[in-house]
């Protein structure tokens, strides 16, 4: 059972045994001997700052038992760089590991560190897509994708098309909506967007709303567009009226349309209609948020109430 202590290749190392903290530690884990021994050797090599092939093997062994161990990943990365290891081989090894541990968090930071050093995004988007197929809202995968796009200037390399594919699958996937925003507006080097792009984005969000009027993601996207372009809310008045009107409470198809209309009426200083819209939300269509809608009503009393 003693993988390391019986191995002559490790005979020069004096393992550092586990110390859980005093005679009666809290939340102590009864580690298996295999794990405990491997960790004792890791502590020992880390104390000596040893960077070697055998340490890489050791970290791989520990990761196979516990992929949620940030220390092992960080030390492995340091080791790979010090030894000038083959980083493409590292990525090839990471792929099945990541797919096996979909929710693992450290793997993505490790991947980012390696790809940064490798200075090449080859194959990454394909791999990300396969991950998102298994888990379409995985926060770490999307965050990694955003890092990748920014780092390798992939703004116009099929990202928009990829997002559209995913939104076609599930128009409620808010992570995909966020990525769309990022791809269109997230490039800090870009100086504004032209009206054509703005119009295209408006139309895209509107089309999604026609399919799912009660889907908040495209409404948030539309609202974001208004703020980005500093357009008045009334830009969307006709559109919002297609889904709701304070005058026709029995024909409301979207609480989000009422919310927007309340802002539009407030902007027009039509307090009465704004109040009607907010009352409908508070009393009938979205009562769980009654306090919030009533707060919005109280803002109508203030000068320059439009937000």
């Amino acid at each position: 059972m003693s993988k390391y202590s019986d191995d002559p290749a490790w005979s020069d190392i004096v393992p550092l045994p586990q110390d859980d903290g005093g005679p009666n530690p809290l939340a102590a884990i009864a580690y298996k001997d295999e794990y405990s021994e491997a960790m004792s050797y890791l502590r020992a090599v880390m104390a000596e700052n040893e960077m070697s092939e055998r340490v890489l093997g050791l970290t791989e062994h520990i990761i196979s038992m516990n992929p949620a161990h940030y220390t092992v990943w960080l030390y492995r990365a340091k080791c790979l760089f010090t030894l000038s290891s083959d980083l493409k081989a590292e990525i090839a090894w990471l792929n099945p590991t990541a797919l096996k541990h979909l929710k693992n968090y450290q793997i993505w930071h490790h991947r980012q560190t390696i790809i940064e050093k490798l200075d090449s995004a080859d194959g990454e988007v394909t791999f990300i897509s396969s991950m998102l197929e298994a888990d379409s809202k995985n926060y770490h995968v999307w965050s990694y994708r955003q890092w990748l796009v920014r780092r390798f200037d992939l703004w116009h390399e099929g990202e928009l098309e990829a997002v559209e594919g995913m939104l076609k699958e599930d128009v409620r996937n808010n992570s995909a909506w966020n990525h769309r925003w990022f791809v269109v507006f997230g490039n800090e080097k870009m100086e504004g967007v032209d009206d054509g792009v703005l119009e295209r984005e408006m139309d895209y969000a509107k089309a999604a709303i026609y399919m799912t009027p009660q889907n908040q993601s495209p409404w948030n996207y539309l609202r974001g567009l208004l703020r980005y372009a500093k357009l008045p809310a009334s830009t969307l008045k006709e559109f919002a009226l297609e889904f709701a009107s304070p005058e026709k409470p029995d024909e409301v198809h979207s609480s989000h349309a009422l919310d927007l209309l309340a802002d539009i009426y407030a902007e027009e200083e039509n307090k009465k209609e704004a109040e009607k819209a907010l009352d409908l939300l508070a009393k009938r269509f979205d009562p769980i948020r009654a306090n919030y809608w009533n707060y919005r009503k109280s803002l109508l009393e203030l000068p320059a109430a439009a937000s």
Partner: peptide, 18 residues
């Protein structure tokens, strides 16, 4: 706050949280 069996080794890095 008590002892954990071996399958909790995945929480090795998260004992402060526990």
């Amino acid at each position: 706050l008590g002892k954990y069996p071996p399958q909790f080794a995945v929480m090795d890095a998260a004992r402060p949280w526990l």
